[in-house]
Amino acid sequence: MKTIKVMLNVNNEKVTLQVKPYETLLETLRERLSLTGAKESCSLGSCGACTVLVNGTPMRSCLILTPEVEGASITTIEGLKNGEKLHPLQQAFMEKGAVQCGFCTSGMILTAKALLDRNKKPEKRDIVKTMSSNICRCTGYKKIIEAVEETSKK
């Protein structure tokens, strides 16, 4: 089957790729670009472990065909740091102990980033609701919510 040429801006870097028409964005990121921070957990859109930002919006990359996002800006967890400086959410997740096994972490942080980019001072309710898009099996969510709250107060 013919491949499709796709241009993306991934973590502020322009890339041009030849992808399979039936290739998911998650596959492209993990297999072609070695950006393995986005995780494949349920692969059906139920868990959020593969969440990345597409033009700033959080999306399940396991449900998106790469050709669909031609021309888009993609942010993965690997692109969140500013040089050596961690994004405040990354810092807060570490400091608050919001990370255990780490498998949901990139999806959680990116989901939270999109929220704070939309709304700098969300109420706790909004934070809980937004973060209820993603599954974490380790933490009981308390420290994740605290980390997002803490960041929003800065």
Binding site: K2, I4, P21, E27, E40
Partner: peptide, 11 residues
């Protein structure tokens, strides 16, 4: 989980 083969067209 990979997708089966199909073509993609954007209208």
């Amino acid at each position: 989980m990979i997708l089966p083969k199909f073509d993609y067209k954007k209208a």
